[in-house]
Design a protein around this nucleic acid. Structure first.
Length: 434
RNA sequence: GGAGAGAUGGCCGAGUGGCUUAAGGCGCAGGUUUGCUAAACCUGUGUAGUCGUAAGGCUACCGAGGGUUCGAAUCCCUCUCUCUCCGCCA
């Protein structure tokens, strides 16, 4: 959520920065301003009435103490209507606040000034490449064919169990997935000094609002219901990413400054309804309703937010470097960035069987946008309460890493070579053909 | 799921309709005293909104939301969570 005071103080700047996203959100600023103005004027009215009521009530108390009942009764009558007026005004204030928050919760974050202005993915600047695209003496197969031949994924039975977009990992497929999760957590907790957490995979809607998924993307989430009890629907949701529970760990807290920076990493499955995306490149593992991911979260002082973003991207890149996979890093332009982000880098790994780059990581600094929504603050040494920057990054998404890995390291004989770094986890140096 | 007990500031804890502006204690910060440390004493010490150049004022907040009342931490209703016991369960 944006700071209302900033909108109040610099409406033109906010409008101009929002306009670079190209979604038309800048047009909602006037509505915020007028609701904010209305709220403040109502507030000063109702608060002075409350002050008056408090004063008279105290007088009544004193009169009762002196047994001057008649005078007290007279004052009661006098004050009675003030109470009614207060009740009425309080309701109006609440309505106006709700209306203001309704708009505010739907305004995206303001892009950082260093972010390239652009309309779509086509305008994302490429920041760097790592290594070369691997070359093959044969035509590299798609992961779909490889998985079927090697019995790593049973696509048909995954669909039988849960419908399209759900995967049944089998044998070496399941073991590779588990090895990758283990490898990623060890890398980030060891070398990169993140604290491992294992959060609930179902969260309250407040957490979805806090992390910024709700209200805008409700239709992308799986809602949970207890049995047939429809009254429980809308309270809990399957996590679309570990970012949701983990970023919310300290919601509604005031942290001590010396607790920062906080670095968390967590494995979780990610559940995404992908409403509206059906039929678009859905074959195989590239877009599915459930995938595994190891997520990185940082909660830091605003001064260090952007340095922390750079190092976080580096941590995600290390994963691909250790695997020996070719990738590129993009900076998302204003028109392509997510709702909560002020600045985002995407890491795309090369998938030879697809002949394209696949997004395996997205690292963002959301600045204080989420901290505001979840009311997470920290107290400075000077005693001031501030909102920290919250960063999230995939470190990395697994289904697509899995794809890149088996497509890159497939051998002429149909087997798959396992990168040295992963061998201690999978306990073999190759997955045998057939 | 059933029965019972609870939820008050950073922490402990008093408070059953108005001398509560939430007592008292602990902790923390500053000060006085002091070779140093400690002790003692004094002062201060929550969150947010709003008005104000500022000093400061006002309003709200005692788990959450409603209600009664001139006035609610206190009375009534609903809900959430925690603890104890029972049942069920991986």
């Amino acid at each position: 959520m944006l700071d209302v005071k900033m909108i109040r103080d610099k409406p033109d700047l906010v409008r101009q920065r929002l306009a670079t996203r190209g979604a038309g959100d800048e047009t909602k600023i006037d509505e915020v301003l007028s609701l904010d103005e209305k709220r403040r004027s109502l507030l000063s009215e109702v608060e002075s009435l409350k002050a008056q009521r408090n004063r008279v009530s105290k007088e009544i108390g004193a009169l009762m103490g002196q047994k001057k009942v008649a005078e007290a009764e007279a004052k009661k009558t006098e004050t009675r209507q003030i109470g009614d007026k207060i009740t009425e005004l309080d309701r109006t204030v609440q309505d106006v606040e709700r209306a203001r928050d309704h708009v505010m919760l739907r305004l995206p974050n303001i892009p950082h000034s260093s972010v390239a202005v652009g309309n779509s993915a086509a305008d994302n600047p490429i920041v760097r490449h790592w290594s070369e695209q691997p070359s093959f003496a044969f035509t590299p197969k798609s992961h779909i064919e490889l998985c079927e031949k090697l019995g790593m994924i049973d696509f048909a039975r995954g669909t039988k169990l849960s419908g399209s977009g759900f995967l049944l990992y089998t044998n070496w497929g399941a073991r590779l997935e588990r090895a990758l999760i283990h490898f990623l957590l060890d890398l980030h907790t060891g070398t990169h000094r993140y604290v491992e957490v294992s959060p609930p995979f179902i969260v309250k809607s407040e957490c979805m609002v806090g992390a910024g998924q709700f209200p805008k993307s409700v239709d992308q989430a799986y809602a949970v219901q207890e049995g047939e009890d429809t009254s429980t629907l809308g309270k809990l949701y399957l996590v679309p990413t570990a970012e949701t529970p983990v970023a919310n760990i300290h919601r509604e807290e005031i942290l001590k400054e010396n607790q920062l920076p906080i670095y968390y990493c967590a494995y979780s499955p990610c559940f995404r309804a992908e409403a509206g995306a059906a039929g678009v490149g859905t074959r195989g593992m590239i877009r599915v309703h459930q995938f595994d991911k190891v997520e990185l979260i940082k909660i830091v002082q605003p001064e260090t937010g952007y340095d922390e973003l750079e190092s976080m991207v580096g941590h995600a890149e290390t994963v691909l470097q250790r695997m020996g996979l070719h990738y590129r890093v993009l900076q998302l332009c204003t028109g392509d960035m997510g709702f909560t982000s002020a600045k985002t880098y995407d890491i795309e790994v090369w998938a030879p069987g697809q002949g394209q780059y696949l997004e395996v990581s997205s690292c963002s600094n959301c600045e204080d946008f989420q901290a505001r929504r979840m009311n997470l603050r920290y107290k400075t040494e000077a005693g001031e309460n501030r909102f920290p920057h919250i960063l999230n990054g995939s470190g990395t998404a697994l289904a697509r890493l899995f794809v890149a890995l088996i497509e890159t390291f497939q051998q002429p004989d149909g087997s798959i070579a396992i990168p040295t770094a992963l061998q201690p986890y999978l306990k073999v140096d190759r997955i045998p053909a057939g």
